[in-house]
Nucleic acid binder design. Structure first.
Lengths: 138, 138
DNA sequence: TAATGCATGAAAACGGTTTTCACTATCGGT
DNA sequence: ACCGATAGTGAAAACCGTTTTCATGCATTA
């Protein structure tokens, strides 16, 4: 379903811009919005357009190379993925720092309750937000 | 924190529009977008503005009278709340029908993993999407 | 009835994201 | 090197759900 139509304008590697984005994602610790990431790249002196940042993030997330979540305002946040396994996050509301957590228990729970309700083709989103130790100290 | 500033334009009851919205929410089975609900009201011949629908839904959700979730496109969906206790939903991707499920297990899991990571002031979102039996049959 | 105050809603503003399209960089073949 | 084809880029515009503005309406009080 996803290998059918390669999105136009997306080599992900090989261009100056793709490289810069990859590096930035490497450095940035937590979940950031596309605009944040773009601003960071500009701050570093990179010449890159917001459009390109969105495009690459889109492909990277389809490929599973970055995780995405939605914050409470509905904005999409991106972060370089550490493991390719299915997992969830505890994310700091204030600084975006996040910790990956194992969630076999929730997976099982989600599958079970959905099955009990007779639903199929089931998917779930689980996100935990809070204040990280550093931000809580302030 | 929420009792400080009464939102302007929101009696929730007593006006023709508020009544119509309440009735529509009563009738509509599952989670619907504000625009859906507005369209439904118009279909029924109600004279009500989209703004008003948004305003009421906002207040109703603050009051806990309707549940809100976000679909995968980031749109907010609303549904009349059945119980005032904290709960989660299994929602049909196709028709919006949803089943409330008890989630003490997830609550505990969320609190535990957040605490292990040292996070405080923790909040979580858990949503399950799938196809309901009726929609799966098609 | 007049005055007051909140509710309403059309239209405009908003803000994140996506699309358009003219331009540029890259690569293979000659 | 020099094409010519193919794919990437990015500024600006379009999109679209949602919120704000503000002139008007309705209802309840004096």
């Amino acid at each position: 379903m996803s290998a059918s139509q390669p999105v136009r304008g997306t080599r992900v590697r090989g261009t100056r811009q793709a490289e810069a984005l990859a590096t930035a994602l490497e450095d940035l610790a937590g979940f950031r919005s596309a605009q944040d990431i773009h601003a960071e790249l500009r701050r570093r002196g990179e010449r890159i357009g917001l459009t390109t940042v969105y495009r690459h993030l889109m492909v990277l997330s389809e490929d599973g190379a970055v995780d995405t979540i939605r914050d409470e305002d509905g904005e999409t946040l991106y972060r370089r993925c550490e493991t390719s396994e299915h997992h969830h996050h505890v994310t700091c509301r204030s600084c975006g720092r996040s910790v990956e957590v194992e969630g076999r228990a929730v997976e099982r729970w989600a599958d079970r309750v959905a099955a009990e309700a007779g639903f199929v083709d089931v998917d779930h989103t689980v996100e935990i937000f809070g204040l990280c130790p550093a931000c809580a100290a302030k």
